[in-house]
């Protein structure tokens, strides 16, 4: 039996905009296996970021259930949700979301402070992680002193601080140039293969296609289709000539 790490059941999310109700998600059912690299694809406004927020317990669905590691997220207490965000998931955002008052090192240690890890241990771990993402020599720089790609590397190191089983990446390459974006994708893919981290990424970057195990196409708040890796490779050949 496959080891399902994320499962959504008829997830609906509605936003109230004045007197209008916007249905961002219209009943999403997906299952994600442990160790998979999944890309949620779709145009902006399709609901992929909303789904990303639901899976990461960053927002509550209006209807339906999200199960992670077999746990129904709607039944967790506030303290359990905080612990879930702290230990089980690592988040990577389009706009990096680093705390600009803390150095790269300070950003990476923060989730470990929340997890109650001793100062010595968290310093060692932060150094190791920043080394791994190639920022060993810029550890004590503030985010403002780093380039976009370097900031995203800090965010990746921070996401891994508490050894999460899932890494959620929301448009991680959208603010980066093609080459830097490629490097970031390779780095995330490496975590996926070497450390067995489940990666769920919302994106419309075609470069993400050839590293994904599966691609979930989202359109108008619904799962349009789910494609496997072997189906994808053919299409990558086709789009390769577009000068992406």
């Amino acid at each position: 039996m496959a080891d399902i790490v994320v499962k959504t059941e008829d997830v609906v999310k509605e936003y109230r905009m004045g007197s209008n109700i916007l249905r961002a998600l219209d009943g999403i059912n997906i299952e994600i296996e442990r160790g998979e690299y999944i890309s949620l694809m779709g145009p902006s406004g399709s609901g992929k970021s909303t789904l990303f927020n639901m899976i990461g317990a960053l927002d509550r669905p209006t209807e339906g259930q999200v199960y992670i590691d077999g746990q129904n997220m709607s039944q967790l207490s506030q303290k359990q949700i905080a612990a879930f965000r702290c230990h089980r998931v690592g988040y990577i955002f389009q706009s990096y979301n680093l705390l600009h008052v803390r150095s790269a090192h300070g950003n990476v240690t923060l989730p470990m402070i929340f997890a109650g890890i001793s100062e010595k241990q968290r310093n060692e771990k932060a150094e190791k992680l920043l080394d791994m993402v190639g920022l060993g020599d810029r550890m004590y720089h503030l985010p403002d002193e780093l380039s976009g790609g370097q900031r995203q590397r800090v965010a990746i190191a921070r996401a891994l601080a508490n050894d999460p089983s899932i890494v959620l990446a929301d448009e991680p390459t959208a603010n980066l140039d093609t080459i830097t974006g490629r490097e970031i994708i390779d780095l995330i893919k490496r975590l996926n293969t070497e450390q067995g981290v489940t990666v769920i990424s919302a994106t419309h970057d075609l470069k993400m296609l050839d590293v994904s195990d599966r691609i979930v196409d989202i359109r108008d708040g619904l799962v349009e289709r789910i494609r496997n890796r072997n189906e994808i490779e053919i299409e990558v050949g086709e789009v390769g000539g577009e000068g992406e």
Binding site: Q71, F84, F114
Partner: peptide, 13 residues
């Protein structure tokens, strides 16, 4: 879907 270790409560700093 098998249940992993249950989610503990977040500690107070």
């Amino acid at each position: 879907m098998q249940q992993r270790t249950p989610i503990e409560e977040q500690i107070d700093l």
